[in-house]
C-alpha cells in the first residue's frame, strides 16, 4: 500500500522494535550476566563499573561432565533423527499413497494418542524401561522418541500434496514403491524433511522430563537436565548458571535464526491442518 511514511508509521515501528527487544531481553541479560563476576550479578545492564570475565565459562567448561553432556545430547539428537526419518518417511508414504484396509482407523488412533501427555505416563514408562534394561542409557530417549505421530502427520500431509502424475508416470515405467519413494518422493520433500529435522533437533535438545526421569548417572545425562547441576552446586552463583544456560541455548538459537523459514513453514502447516 505505497503510502507516504507517516508519523504514525514511525511510532508503530519504534513500538514494535521495543517489544521485540523486550521479548529477547531475558536472553540478553542471560548472556550479559554470564560474563560478570558473581558479585555483580544483580547490577543493571549498562551500570557503570561492570567487570567482564570468562571465569564462569571456564567453570562450566571445566565441569568434569560438561563435554559428556554435550556429546550425549548430540548423539541422541542425531540417532533419533535418523531412525525417526527412516520409519516415519516409510509410514507416511504408505498413509498418503497406498490403499490398505484399516488405514483411516490406524491413523485416527495414532492421532488420538497424541492427547496423552508424557507427564501422565511417566511412572509406567519408568517401570517398563527398568524392566527392559534401558534406563541410564541413551536408548531410553532414542527409542520412544523414534515414533512421534506429529512428524508422521507432517510428512503424510506433505506427501499427499505431491501431484499424482509423478507417481503414475513412474508406475507405468514399472518402478516399485521403494523406487518411487526414494527417487521421487524424498527428493521432492526437501522442505518437509528439513522441517522434521529442525523440529526434532529443537525438541530433543530441549527435552527435560525424559532424560531427567530415565537417566540417573551424571555422565550419561543430556545438556538440558544437566543444567540443574549448576543450580545445586552453586545456588548463589548466578553467573555460572547463566553461562551454563547460554551454552545450552545458543546452539539452538543460532540454528533457529538460520533455518527460520522451515520452522515457520512447519508450524504453519502443522497449525492449519489442526
Amino acid at each position: 500500500m505505497g503510502k507516504p511514511l507517516k508519523k504514525k508509521d514511525i511510532v508503530f515501528t519504534v513500538v514494535m522494535w521495543i517489544l521485540a527487544i523486550l521479548m529477547i531481553y531475558p536472553f540478553i541479560m542471560m548472556v550479559a550476566i554470564s560474563f560478570r563476576p558473581s558479585g555483580q550479578a544483580y547490577m543493571s545492564l549498562f551500570a557503570p563499573g561492570i567487570l567482564y570475565t570468562l571465569r564462569n565459562y571456564k567453570e562450566v567448561l571445566f565441569h568434569p561432565n560438561f563435554f559428556d553432556w554435550y556429546r550425549n545430547t548430540i548423539v541422541t539428537v542425531a540417532v533419533t533423527i535418523i531412525i525417526r526419518l527412516c520409519i516415519t518417511i516409510m509410514a507416511a508414504y504408505a498413509f498418503s499413497r497406498l490403499r490398505f484396509r484399516g488405514k483411516a482407523a490406524i491413523l485416527a488412533f495414532l492421532v488420538a494418542t497424541m492427547m496423552v501427555p508424557g507427564e501422565t505416563t511417566m511412572v509406567p514408562r519408568y517401570l517398563y524401561f527398568q524392566q527392559i534394561h534401558i534406563l541410564n542409557t541413551l536408548w531410553s530417549i532414542v527409542l520412544p522418541e523414534a515414533s512421534e505421530v506429529f512428524y508422521l502427520i507432517l510428512l503424510t500431509e506433505f506427501f499427499s500434496s505431491i501431484p499424482g502424475d509423478f507417481t503414475e508416470a513412474a508406475s507405468i515405467d514399472g518402478a516399485g514403491h521403494g523406487t518411487v519413494l526414494t527417487r521421487i518422493f524424498i527428493p521432492l520433500s526437501g522442505p518437509a524433511i528439513a522441517t522434521t529435522i529442525l523440529f526434532s533437533f529443537i525438541n530433543i535438545w530441549n527435552n527435560f522430563l525424559d532424560p531427567y526421569l530415565f537417566i540417573n548417572r551424571i555422565s550419561m545425562q543430556l545438556i538440558t537436565p544437566a543444567l540443574q547441576f549448576f543450580q545445586e552446586q552453586g545456588g548463589a552463583n548466578m553467573p555460572v548458571q547463566m553461562a551454563g544456560s547460554s551454552l545450552a541455548l545458543i546452539p539452538v538459537i543460532i540454528l533457529f535464526v538460520f533455518t527460520q523459514k522451515y520452522f515457520v513453514q512447519g508450524v504453519a502447516s502443522a497449525g492449519i491442518k489442526g
Binding site: 529477547i24 530441549n206 527435560f208 538440558t224 545450552a248 541455548l249 538459537i253
Partner: peptide, 8 residues
C-alpha cells in the same frame, strides 16, 4: 526465539 529455548 523464546519458543526454541528450554524452560530450565
Amino acid at each position: 526465539i523464546p519458543y526454541v529455548t528450554n524452560m530450565i
